[in-house]
């Protein structure tokens, strides 16, 4: 039973983006369109699941004084694998995400979960945590991207959703729009929490 609760907690209660505020850089940078967000989410989820599994497997043989460098090596290896695989099979997406794929290495979500969860729990729960956190991050990315893409290009996943007379609000897909969207979303989350309390 705990397996499922470890998955679901990442979606809302401990959403890595909105609640833990980890990994803001890629969220803001690649959320210009929903397709980019989904691609980034998938890459992060994959790396998170793999690194969580490996780290929970090796947690007992790694001396604690050099655990961080070793975790980084594990994470960097998976990131490079994702990077190369994407370049070979999804070249367009690879181009759109650009430098943010190698930068998954320093995405605080991954190292954060390795340190806070995988190094203390068994493989099964670590796997669940990886899935949950990965999906949570993807969800957050997709929400931000949905707002930005609809406002900024009038489309969703490339399909036109706004009437043709709608003049896209360019600022939404430019850098400032990213900050505004995330800022207001977080305020909204706080507000909802306040009401419930």
């Amino acid at each position: 039973m705990r397996f499922f609760s470890e998955i679901t907690k990442g979606l809302i209660k401990e959403n890595p983006m909105f609640v833990l505020v980890l990994g803001t850089c890629p969220t803001l940078a690649v959320s210009t369109s929903v397709i980019n967000a989904l691609g980034m989410g998938a890459a992060v989820t994959f790396v998170l699941i793999c690194s969580n599994i490996i780290i929970s497997l090796i947690k007992n043989i790694v001396p604690s004084s050099i655990r961080i460098p070793i975790y980084i090596v594990v994470i960097a290896a998976f990131v490079s694998v994702v990077d190369m695989t994407m370049a070979a099979f999804l070249p367009d997406l690879h181009k759109a995400l650009g430098i943010f794929i190698p930068l998954i290495v320093v995405n605080c979500i991954i190292l954060g979960r390795a340190e806070a969860f995988a190094s203390k729990n068994n493989v099964l729960y670590s796997l669940a945590d990886g899935i949950g956190m990965g999906l949570g991050a993807t969800l957050a990315l997709t929400i931000v991207a949905t707002i930005r893409e609809i406002l900024g290009s009038g489309t969703w996943l490339g399909i036109r959703v706004m009437p043709n007379s709608y003049e896209p609000m360019l600022v939404a897909i430019l850098a400032p729009g990213a900050f505004f969207t995330l800022g207001f979303l977080m305020a909204l989350m706080n507000r909802l929490k306040e009401k419930r309390a």
Binding site: V21, A175, F179, G183, A187
Partner: peptide, 20 residues
């Protein structure tokens, strides 16, 4: 509900706008 992170992000957005 605006205190802390939300207002910081909105400030950053305004600065980004100015940097444009």
């Amino acid at each position: 509900y605006m205190r802390g992170m939300p207002i910081a992000l909105i400030l950053a957005g305004t600065m980004a706008l100015a940097f444009y």
